[in-house]
Design a binder for these strands. Structure first.
Length: 227
DNA sequence: CGGAAGATCCACT
DNA sequence: GTGGATCTTCCGA
């Protein structure tokens, strides 16, 4: 991890402090809303980039038809999901993009939270270079999507299984979002999962500019339209 | 061993 | 809004 020394970020030491190991040892749908506002801290080759998580989705393991572990499926790819909570599960999707998950729960539960969007907090120039985009990105261009944020933070399968407590990829305390600012809705891109596609397991900071796609504001239980 | 589909993104119409 | 990129993973034969 890069040393402190940046003069411009305003990030405090407590915001960078790793979340406790016990934080992860719960169901994914309990952990997911508490991940909103947390800092994802990527350190590599003396550089640092930090993103604030603003959108996530919970995947509940064997009983969740949308999960890679649906029905208790256990394969070489998904083995990381079955580990004890507190590690990263990174996989390649569509042969092109990587997705980052936070593994939750005790061993063999295969619970995970997909990180769907971050707001850049530090290291913006590095993220822009990683994304290969122009110097003045619009909101969402850097981290507004699961594949985008992995590219921005240089996350690929070499980080599959790494601890989130210390090292190249850390989940820090950050600036948690107040519960009244959270919204929830159905998960994206899981139409193959039948009824489970409608489960309200997507969580986001309401009306946040860096979200991958909008969620209508409303009471829990009201969803946005859109298939 | 073959084929189909995928927790996505981007360019184009 | 639609379709193409691109390749690993997984399941069935």
């Amino acid at each position: 991890m890069a040393d402190e020394g940046a003069l411009t970020t305003g990030i405090t030491a407590s915001e960078l402090r790793p979340l406790a190991p016990e934080f992860y040892l719960r169901r994914a749908d309990e952990v997911a809303p508490e991940l909103l506002g947390r800092f994802l801290i990527r350190g590599a080759r003396g550089r640092r980039a930090v993103g604030r998580i603003v959108e996530v989705e919970a995947y509940l393991g064997a009983d969740d038809p949308a999960s890679h572990a649906a029905g208790g499926r256990r394969t070489a790819r998904t083995e990381t999901m079955y580990r004890r909570g507190g590690v990263a599960y990174v996989y390649l999707i569509y042969g092109l993009h990587h997705c980052l998950n936070v593994v939750c729960g005790p061993s063999d539960e295969a619970q995970a939270v997909l990180v769907r969007a971050i707001e850049p907090v530090d290291g913006l120039e590095w993220m822009i270079a990683n994304r290969g985009i122009g110097p003045e990105p619009r909101p969402g261009d850097v981290g507004g999507g699961p594949g985008k944020l992995c590219q921005a933070l240089a996350i690929d399968r070499s980080l599959d299984g790494v601890s989130l407590l210390d090292g190249e990829l850390v989940l820090g305390e950050g600036r948690p979002a107040p519960p009244e600012e959270l919204v929830r809705g159905p998960r994206i891109g899981v139409d193959y999962a039948g009824e489970a596609a409608a489960w309200p397991l997507r969580f986001a900071v309401a009306d946040h500019r860096h979200m991958s796609r909008p969620i209508m504001r409303g009471r829990p239980g009201r969803y946005n339209r859109r298939s």
